[in-house]
């Protein structure tokens, strides 16, 4: 409990200073948010067009897909507006910047993740909430569950970013690999889940855990199913755990100096 308060305080201190830092360039911050809005909106427009022609795809209607986009965007946004360094992890490892983080009397991983806020993620976060409120017009219980699911998805994205980012401990060209994996995961998680079957479906429940973003959250909201919400949370925690293990195993290599040959 002590630990929890201590790190909650740390998180709030970092959120404050990150926000202040972003506001130092207000114009750039706002234009990055707007850019994300436009970018995300293209996809909403695509789905609206698609569903005017084909109203139902394997039981999914336009509201389901918009809900999915809203959760994925807000979840991704929430994850990286608070823990923006999750996206920068491979670079931090490969450039030897972990050193500075190892000098503080704090657990390395959470502290490091809090260290930066991704400006465009604020746009993603707001976009999802606005789109959900305007297009789906939820009642209070749905909206509350929606917010809870955002948190679950955020945990999952942080976990996945940490997992893929930690590959940099083990291989030299991890930066592009981890970006590609992340993009693949995000892409898979923003399409109606029932279109994926067979082997790929298994893949999306495991190595590229997109199903925890797309499938379980939407069905949880559609049926107000607490069980599906719990599964989604469970999956998110599992991914986070895998990420943490990967990071600390890799950190041991870092501390032994075995990465030196890659950094030159």
């Amino acid at each position: 409990m002590n630990w929890l308060t201590s790190y909650t305080n740390l998180a709030s201190a970092y959120i404050k200073i990150n926000f202040k830092s972003l506001l130092a360039y207000r114009g750039a911050f706002i234009s990055q948010m707007v850019a994300m809005f436009i970018n995300d909106f293209v996809w909403i427009a695509f789905w609206c067009l698609f569903f005017t022609r084909f109203p139902v795809v394997k039981g999914w209607g336009v509201n389901d897909v918009i809900t999915l986009w809203a959760i994925a965007a807000s979840g991704f946004g929430l994850a990286h507006m608070i823990m923006g360094n999750a996206l920068a992890l491979p670079g931090i490892i490969m450039r030897g910047e972990l050193d500075s983080w190892l000098l503080y009397p704090r657990a390395v991983l959470p502290h490091l993740l809090l260290g930066k806020s991704s400006a465009s993620s604020w746009g993603d976060f707001l976009f999802g909430i606005v789109v959900y409120a305007i297009f789906v017009k939820p009642d209070l219980p749905h909206f509350s569950l929606f917010m809870a699911l955002i948190c679950s998805v955020a945990v999952l994205f942080v976990g996945f970013s940490v997992f893929t980012g930690s590959l940099a401990f083990f291989m030299g060209s991890a930066e592009s690999v981890s970006v590609q994996l992340r993009i693949a995961m995000i892409t898979f998680s923003t399409y109606p889940s029932p279109i994926f079957q067979g082997f790929v479906k298994i893949l999306l429940f495991t190595l590229l855990p997109a199903m925890f973003v797309s499938h379980l959250t939407v069905s949880a909201l559609r049926n107000m199913s607490m069980l599906d919400a719990l599964y989604s949370f469970g999956g998110a925690l599992g991914v986070l755990l895998a990420g943490i293990i990967m990071f600390y195993v890799g950190l041991r290599r870092y501390e032994s100096g075995n990465l030196m040959e890659m950094r030159g």
Binding site: L10, A13, K20, S21, Y25, L103, Y104, R106
Partner: peptide, 30 residues
């Protein structure tokens, strides 16, 4: 870490876009 201080000449712990005062505040929390 609580009992030692470290300065790397080529690496800064100051927040680049913010005044030093904010970094002090953050360090007090860390």
């Amino acid at each position: 870490a609580k009992r030692i201080g470290v300065v790397f000449g080529q690496r800064s712990q100051l927040w680049y876009h913010l005044p030093p005062r904010d970094t002090f505040e953050l360090l007090s929390k860390i």
